[in-house]
Simulated assay, not measured.
Amino acid sequence: MPLNRRFRRMTRVGPVQVGTAYDNRGREKHTAACTAPRCGFSADYDSRAAAELAARTHRCPVR
């Protein structure tokens, strides 16, 4: 069953969106996810800076 997260503080860095939400244990998590077709990149991070760094350095493998 997928998680239903309520994201806040959504920002966009190129094709990657960075958002902040709480996980199922009440901890704040930051997610970076690529919105390009057929890319599939997404990752959770403990700090906002790490998520934004991943968004800035992400390169889509599908061209």
Rank of each mutant, 00 (worst) to 15 (best):
S42L: 12
G26Y: 05
A51H: 08
E28N: 08
Y45C: 02
R63D: 15
N4A: 15
R27T: 05
R48T: 05
H58E: 03
A43N: 05
C34F: 02
H30T: 05
V62W: 12
V13F: 06
A21G: 08
P37Y: 10
R12W: 04
P2Q: 10
P37A: 14
V18Y: 00
V16S: 00
R63T: 13
N4Q: 12
A50W: 02
T11R: 09
P61C: 01
V13D: 01
R12D: 08
D23F: 03
G26E: 04
R25A: 14
H58S: 05
R5P: 07
R56L: 00
R25M: 14
T57P: 04
S42F: 13
R25L: 14
P15S: 09
G14A: 07
V18R: 00
E28R: 14
K29E: 08
P37R: 10
R59A: 06
S47Y: 04
D44Q: 10
A55H: 01
L3R: 11
D23G: 05
C34I: 08
P2L: 11
T35V: 00
G14R: 01
R63I: 07
F7P: 09
A55P: 01
D23K: 03
R25H: 14
G19A: 02
S42V: 09
D44T: 04
A43Q: 07
S42Y: 10
A49S: 12
R8Y: 13
C34S: 01
F41Y: 14
D44N: 13
Y22N: 09
H30M: 00
N4K: 14
R5T: 02
R38T: 09
C34H: 03
E28S: 09
Y22V: 08
Q17C: 11
F41P: 01
P2I: 02
R8K: 15
P2A: 10
P15G: 07
P61M: 04
A21M: 10
D44W: 09
R27E: 11
A21K: 05
N4P: 10
R12I: 05
T35N: 06
A54L: 00
A33S: 13
A36Q: 15
G26K: 02
R25E: 14
R9P: 04
H58R: 07
T11D: 09
G26M: 03
D23W: 04
L53V: 06
A36E: 15
R12P: 03
R25N: 11
T11S: 09
G40Q: 01
R56Y: 06
R8Q: 13
R63C: 08
P2D: 07
R48Q: 10
T31V: 12
L53A: 15
M10Q: 13
P15T: 09
R56H: 08
D23N: 13
A54P: 03
L53K: 15
L53P: 05
R56A: 06
